[in-house]
Every structure is written in C-alpha cells, then in structure tokens.
Nucleic acid binder design. Structure first.
Lengths: 319, 319
DNA sequence: ATAAAATATGAAATGCATTTCATAGCAATA
DNA sequence: TATTGCTATGAAATGCATTTCATATTTTAT
C-alpha cells in the first residue's frame, strides 16, 4: 500500500509538501503541486485516515445512539441527522441500543477512544451521572429537555404539548382520557406523565392506571389497546396516542370492530406522519427531520445551546 | 490525555508490557499485570483507537450503504445487521445515499482510507465496475444476486419469487396483472421486470406499461396507485405490491373508495410485515433480519459466499 | 545432565500523516 | 536602505499503540 512517503519520493518533494498539497495549504509552487498531484494520480494514493485522525485528534465521525432504527420516529430523526451530516462532510456511527444501558456506555466509550468527535443521544436509558462522566471527552447532544445547561439539546416540550392536547379534549367535553406511549421511563415519557397527572388533578378527575397503555410504538400495537378498551367496562372516551403509527392502527382496528371515531373514541396522534394525513387523524406535527438537523449542528458546534421545537396541532377528523 | 507511556511509567514497566496486559497476552507475571491494571484504573486510561487502527490495520467498523433509513425494508435490514454487529463487537458506519452514486463512492472510498474493514451494500445505484475498483481495499457484500462469484452476497431470487406470484395469480384466473415497485432500476427491480415480461410473453398477454406503478415504497404511495387504477378504463384485476406498506395503504384506500378486495382488485404484498398480518394481506415472508445477520457475517468472514434466501408465500385474504 | 520449550520482559522499529521549527528568497513598506 | 511580511520548502518531532527482536529465566522433556 502506497503512503505519503512514496508520493514524496515519486514527486521529488518532501512529505511536508505532499501533506500541504493534500490539505490545500496555499503557498506551494505550481510545479511541485502538479508533481504531487500526478504522483497521487499515478499510484491511486489515498490518505490513511487512521493516521490523520491520530495526528489531528478528530475523525469527522459522529455517533448516533438510538434504541432501534425500524420505527418511523427514529428513522426520520436519523434521516434528518444523516442529511445534515452529508452536507458537513461528516459520517455517522450508529449505535443501536435496544434501550440497553450497556450499549449506551459502549457508545460513550467511543468518545474516550477518540473514535468519534461527538455523540447524539436520540433516546437514552442510562442515568444522567453516567453521561456526565463523559463530558470531558467530546460533545454530547440530547433530544430531551435539560435542567442544567451542561449539554446541548433539541427538544419538544412534551409537558406543554401533552397538556395542550389534554385541555383540548377537555374542552370538547371529554372526561375519560387515556394515553398510549412507547415506554413509561425516559425523560420525555415522564414529562408526559407529569402533564397527565397534573391535568387530572387540576380538573379533579379520577386516575385510572389502566388508561395508560404502554408499549405503543407500531401500527400493530394498536390491537392490544383496542382489546383492552373493548374489555373495559369503563373505557376511555378519548386517547392521546404518542405515535401516529399506533393511532392509524387504532383507526383501522376500530373500523373492523365498529367502534366509531370520534363518537365512541376520540383520538389525537403525534408526529404528523403521512399515514395520519391519509387517515385524517388529528395530530401534532413534530418536525423530526428538522430536529435531526439541529441536533447534528449542535454536535459539531463548540457552543452549548438548547433549542426548543414547537409541536403544531393539526386538527383533522378524529376528535 | 494520558497515554500508554504514562501508564508504563506509573506502573513501572515498559510500554510493551502495558500493551500486552491490555491485549491479554498470556505471559505476564501477576504483579506486573496488577500494577498495570491499577495504573489504568487510577488514570482512567483508555486506548486511542486511531492509534490501534493505524497500527493493526483494522477498525472493527463495518460500513452500511442504504438509500434511506425511514422505510421498514431498510430499517429491518439495518436492525438485523446491527444486532449481529453487537454480538461480534463491531460497530456500524452508516451511509445514507438517497440512491446517489456520489455517496456510494464516498462509502467505497472509506474502505481505501482504512476507516472501515468492510462495506455492506443494502442497495446500490452505481455501476458494477465502480464497485470492482474497490475490491482490493476490503470486503464488499451485497444484497443481490451476483453473476460472477467475485463478492459475497445474500439475496432473494426475485425473478423466481415474482414469477411464482404471477403464476399463482394466473391460476386464480387473473389475466390483467400489474405491479407496484420502489424504483425501476437496480438489479432486484430488473429481475422482477424480467420475470414480469417473461410471464406475459409465456402466456401471450398484452403488455400494458401503465400496469407498472413506480415509486411505491410507503403507505401513502398507495394513493397515487389507486387514483391511476380508478382513472384507467382497463384497470388491472390484480397487483403485485413489492412493499407491504404500500399494500396496506391500497387496502385502506380501497375501503374508502369501495373497491372490494379481492373481487375488484387482488393484492399480493411483499415482506410479511406486521401490518400485512393485521390487515390479512396475502404476502411473501422475507426474513430481513435474517438477511441482515447473514450479510454481516459475510462482511467479517474471509471467504466469499453466496446465500440465497427463500421468500415464503403466505396465503391470506387479498387474492 | 542437557537440550528444548515455555515464561517473562523491554528496546526499538513500525504504521502514516500533520505540524512545528528552521531557513531563505523576494516583494512591499517605512 | 533597512525592515517587515509574504511565499516556498524541508527536517524532524509528534500523535499512540503494536509488534518484532533480543534476551533472560524457568520448566519440562530426553
């Protein structure tokens, strides 16, 4: 394999000059530059990026942590990040964690190993202090609201959004409201739970723990929800569904089960995915690609910043 | 930042010994080993993987090329690859190409730059000779049928599968069969087109170019299909839909439009996604996670191999 | 008892490119 | 004219860890 030394010899210059040509250093005579370029061409030379990274201390690689990539939520986010990465000539290292802490730590460790310049957490399971340990080793960016201003993040205020949705349903007359969520833990989920609890307290409504439907991520997860709703002798009259996929599934299920929407069951989805538009589901538009873009930009910037993204309510026909 | 030299000094041994301890070389006295480990612990030392990679020539990084990650097809494939990568202590570098050749070449270049050990193409746009150029620089694995045995691949025989589906529809009495596909180009699409053309030739059926519906990937892409079907004065009586997402969308559309399935329009989907089961769509099960797993294994193995994956027909209610 | 094999350790070479330092000619400025 | 700034180039140091040699001490085998 040909290296910079070979090029130098071939072009009759020093390795310094070769390096300078390769890195567009301005003060090089045209002859030497041409000679180097010719040698590169002839030998089909390519820098060894491990050597470059060792020397310069950075890799143009950004880590992305997400539990799985086959859900539209993460798919879209990843898409947004990837598109922006391309623009800035960075590559992405993917860490699929299945929500396992050990995998998240592995990703963090790669900051320390200098294999990545920064790390984006699309979602996390590990505790905050673990993340903090790795602050010295590179930029860490999250997709959740951060109390202290210690790291950059781009986030949707889920408390606010959830409360807005709940109030809307309340105004429409609903008193038995439930919600479907991907997982109970995680900052974003806890924020929504807090909103839900504050809401029922505010309006003096009874708390039904069975109005909270867990593990709702996909289209088919709706089956379990509708089965539970059918079995209940006091079912909710409205559901907040944190994924449009599941909301669409619920609509489909209800058609089969002759549960009419919104009369028997009102629905508010989240994400404003194309399927929600197609099925006329009232939802919140959340610009995931935009979030992906922002989060990437934060990852490559030196300054720490917090960006709040607003979810916009889209009224359609399921309430 | 503390390096191996610092550890050596601290532990009172040579850097060689430190390296050996770190790499589990067998012949080290217990005292020295303990001293090194203690120094590592104390200083929170972590190897610089760029230096390791520079020296050893490999990175434990595998590149994955795919057009986009927000479609279940690629999401599932990626998931399968990622799960297997974890088992083998490898990480994935993601190349999202949007089917652009330039991006694919960038991915290939990273083999040459020694940033990745191998490259998996989930889908490609670039021509074969371009790929061939990079054979010397690392293992390349594809998800398509390979003529010559020059690279490893895991693939579904789409010609065979498509022909099987067409024959099935023919036996059921269908003579006006169309199909929905993601893109017209690409080996897999061309294989299906070949099957389609051979099929109509075999049965002496007329070729309607408008029976081929392009750009069908997502649920909502079904709208265009159904609109075209409605407008046609000689619409197909059956459709092969290469993505269950789109097939599910078609089912949903048809419900609204009161086109009854399978009477007015028969449907065979592909992928056997959960949504197909839920909506009772006749489809082909294609084990994408399994393909992902295989393809990863091929990427880290030295030998070249070709693995054919069989798509299994699942009869449900849309034919 | 002696040769061969196993255990244990370190100095120095190596992988490859960037960057600092040093040097020198030439043009612009004071 | 003297001084500063720009252009141009290369030797050597540097980033960090692995691996090859070289060497020495113990064991084991013959």
């Amino acid at each position: 394999m040909v290296n910079i030394k070979d090029i130098a010899k071939l072009a009759g210059v020093s390795v310094t000059t070769v390096s300078r040509v390769l890195n567009n250093y301005p003060y090089i005579s045209d002859e030497k530059k041409a000679a180097v370029l010719k040698a590169v061409q002839m030998t089909d030379y390519q820098q060894n990026m491990n050597a470059v990274s060792l020397r310069t201390g950075h890799t143009s690689l950004i880590g992305v942590v997400l539990p799985f990539s086959h859900h539209p939520y993460f798919g879209l986010l990843l898409n947004g990040i990837a598109n922006e990465a391309i623009k800035h000539n960075h590559k992405l290292l993917l860490f699929q964690t299945n929500y396992e802490v050990e995998k998240e730590i592995e990703a963090l460790r790669m900051l320390k190993e200098k294999r990545i310049d920064a790390l984006i957490f699309c979602s996390r399971t590990c505790d905050w202090p673990i993340i903090q340990e790795y602050f010295p080793y590179g930029k860490i960016v999250l997709c959740e609201k951060i109390r202290d201003g210690s790291v950059s993040s781009t986030f949707v205020d889920h408390y606010k959004t959830f409360m807005g949705a709940l109030d809307y349903l309340y105004d429409k007359g609903h008193r038995k409201i439930g919600y479907c969520i991907g997982r109970r833990s995680g900052t974003n989920s806890l924020d929504r739970e807090a909103a839900y609890k504050d809401f029922i307290t505010k309006h003096n409504l009874p708390f039904h723990s069975d109005y909270i439907y867990d593990h709702c991520l996909t289209f088919e997860d709706s089956i379990k929800v509708i089965n539970k709703v059918k079995e209940s002798n006091n079912p909710p009259s409205a559901l907040l569904v944190t994924s449009d996929q599941t909301a669409a599934g619920i609509v489909t299920c209800c058609q089969k089960e002759t549960i009419s929407i919104p009369e028997d069951l009102a629905l508010i989805g989240f994400d404003n995915q194309p399927i929600a538009k197609m099925m006329n589901i009232t939802t919140f538009d959340i610009p995931y690609k935009e979030i992906g873009k922002k989060v990437f930009l934060q990852a490559i910037k030196d300054e720490i910043s917090q960006e709040e993204i607003t979810a916009t309510f889209i009224e359609r026909n399921t309430v």
